[in-house]
Design a protein around this nucleic acid. Structure first.
Lengths: 290, 290
DNA sequence: CATTAGATATGCAATAACGCATGTATGGGA
DNA sequence: TCCCATACATGCGTTATTGCATATCTAATG
């Protein structure tokens, strides 16, 4: 009478993705399989779940109802996965950590090095990403984030407070020393697209020479001497070839947080990682502020 | 990383049933398949879900957690199934009705006859059972029950009020007429196991000649002249060979209800069935009371 | 101590599910 | 109008899943 649970899940993903192909990708199966599962579910339920239109599958009312309850089922699945990870007291198995790309090299990597040698049975996976992983879906067990607060419903602890300052190649230091009338070329982050606040006060002739959507590329451009970049202190200080310049007064910036889902937080693996990460940041606290 | 939903469901049923065989029966698969699904789930989750003991599978803490969340998932599945049935406005497809065995012949069957000829595309399945079907699990879409109230969280309407009286073969009518000193042999329902309340007041020499767990068998015994049976009026009146006897004064009894789950209640099929059943009971209301 | 019932493992053949390649239909852009 | 990208349908060979038969193990029983 009823349909298989895997088929209900499949319906959910077709509704979510809007196409067989998208659902297949999400489920890790071929889209033909998705089509067959939908057909099977329809046979089992004796209902039409999707209208086959020229531009894809469109859910019927019944299809939407299936998807809705399947979404509820998925919430429990996700809750279970977090719960199982959270109560796991073994120092073996998978541990997924995510952190901003540019923080990894100078600050996370050394911790990871010690972690993996101390806990050789833990299979650590590091997701370098500036995008926010969904910890509810266990896309990561632990995340290092730069933000004003731990956010949503996550457990978090502050790893460091940080300031920003202006950094550039050495020739810019000389140029800026010539006086407030020099033309200052700024490399700015895409979504700001204008000279940083306060820059015009000290150097009225500041201008944007380039916008960019990637901080790593901006660093490269700065090292090459293209202009001045406002960035976190730690980043300027740890990038060879860059020096702090007085184009902009240091200003406090968002904190660095270590966050995790409350369900997953008690996991031995996550705790072990925290226990190495936190002291490491504490010791190097000075590198983040002016 | 995660496990398949069908495997989570399988874990649930092993925890519920306590053995692979029980789970297999519940799921409609061979128990070997159950064992393999458990093994697959354990591999996927990298966890031991069951201890393999000599006398069966015993869930670990992790296994219990999986089962618990899977149970929550199942609640949503059941809710979905009811919902889909409830919104279905077609007069085709399956309709499962349950009713007490002895009510079917005289009162339900005539309605069913008309129903199936009026709605030939509805696949009516009648579960004659004195056990209470779980309407939450959609073991039935509509139930005729003899009870004091519609009960739990079900929607219901009262089909008839009814009385009980004492019935027996004709020779008992003659015997009882001889006076209050005659020995009255009672056939009583198993779980009462004693002479009905009030019987000793009119016939002090009443005694239990047989207890039985099945009313149909009791009817047979009564027709055979074995003794007197207290039963609903409708039953005595519709059973050939039985006549009401004054061994016991008529007393009001539990009502007859037509009940259904609120989710399923609006279904066109259920509504159509109700719409035939209710007038039928209303017309014959007099047959149930003294 | 042998036996039996209940419960789980395992090997093998049958079946069902799957992925891939190919074909069809539709709509947008050059 | 033609081309191409998107989206689904279908046929076929491959793989994974399943059921059955058989073997193993344990506890309870005679």
């Amino acid at each position: 009478m009823g349909a298989q649970w895997s088929d209900l899940k499949t319906v959910l993903h077709v509704v979510r993705g809007g196409s067989l192909a998208a659902a297949g990708a999400a489920l890790g199966v071929n889209y033909t399989t998705v089509a067959r599962r939908i057909a099977r579910a329809e046979r089992a339920l004796d209902l039409i779940l999707f209208e086959r239109l020229a531009d894809g599958y469109v859910a019927t009312d019944a299809g939407l109802r299936v998807a809705k309850q399947a979404a509820e089922m998925e919430l429990h699945e996700l809750s279970l996965m977090r719960e199982l990870q959270g109560v796991d007291q073994r120092l073996s198995g998978a541990l997924v950590v995510t952190a901003p790309q540019l923080l990894i090299g100078p600050f996370i990597a050394p911790v990871i090095e010690r972690f993996v040698s101390s806990h050789p049975d833990v299979n650590l996976h590091l997701k370098a990403s500036n995008e926010v992983m969904d910890l509810t879906r266990r896309e990561a067990d632990f995340a290092v984030r730069i933000s004003a607060s731990p956010g949503d419903s996550l457990t978090g602890l502050r790893l460091a407070a940080q300031d920003t300052a202006s950094f550039a190649a050495p020739q810019w230091a000389e140029k800026l020393a010539q006086g407030p009338e020099v033309v200052v070329d700024w490399i700015v982050y895409e979504r700001f697209a204008q000279v940083p606040m306060g820059a015009l006060e000290t150097y009225p002739n500041s201008r944007v020479v380039m916008t960019c959507n990637d901080m790593a590329a901006m660093l490269g451009a700065a090292v090459a001497g293209l202009g001045v970049v406002r960035m976190p202190m730690f980043l300027g200080r740890t990038t060879p070839g860059l020096f702090q310049v007085p184009a902009l007064a240091p200003r406090s910036y968002m904190d660095i947080w270590g966050v995790g889902h409350p369900d997953v937080w008690p996991s031995a693996r996550v705790k072990a990682f925290r226990d190495m990460l936190v002291p490491s940041f504490r010791e190097r606290r000075a590198e983040f502020v002016r």
